[in-house]
């Protein structure tokens, strides 16, 4: 099978993820889309690893997974605490970052 197809799939997944981050308002969904983008990257890494025949890509994919797991912990905690205080999980309601 042509490994390029995996890359096309990775690109498609990444695009879907990016579009989701930009369009959706629910923080949980946005979060899922971020994960989708990360996984798209992982897919691409693994594919390249296969194509070039060395393990660097797979190693980085593992790194990404670990980081993503850590990110989930922190991110979900933030979302939950925002939901508790504001009774909404919409990212548009949380615009306190402007000065």
């Amino acid at each position: 099978m042509n490994p390029a197809n995996y890359l096309y799939l990775a690109a498609l997944l990444f695009t879907i993820g990016a579009a989701g981050v930009l369009i959706r308002r629910n923080a949980i969904v946005v979060f899922m889309c971020v994960e989708l983008m990360l996984n798209a990257c992982n897919l691409a890494f693994v594919t390249f690893s296969r194509m070039h025949g060395n393990l660097d890509g797979q190693v980085i994919a593992f790194f990404t997974m670990v980081v993503a797991a850590a990110e989930v912990v922190v991110g979900l905690a933030i979302i939950v605490s925002i939901f508790r205080s504001r009774h909404s999980a919409s990212v548009d309601d949380a615009n306190l970052m402007k000065l």
Binding site: L22, V30, V91, A94, N95, L96, M97, K98, L99
Partner: peptide, 8 residues
């Protein structure tokens, strides 16, 4: 002004 606070 660019910093409108919207994550998106």
């Amino acid at each position: 002004k660019l910093q409108n606070g919207y994550v998106r």
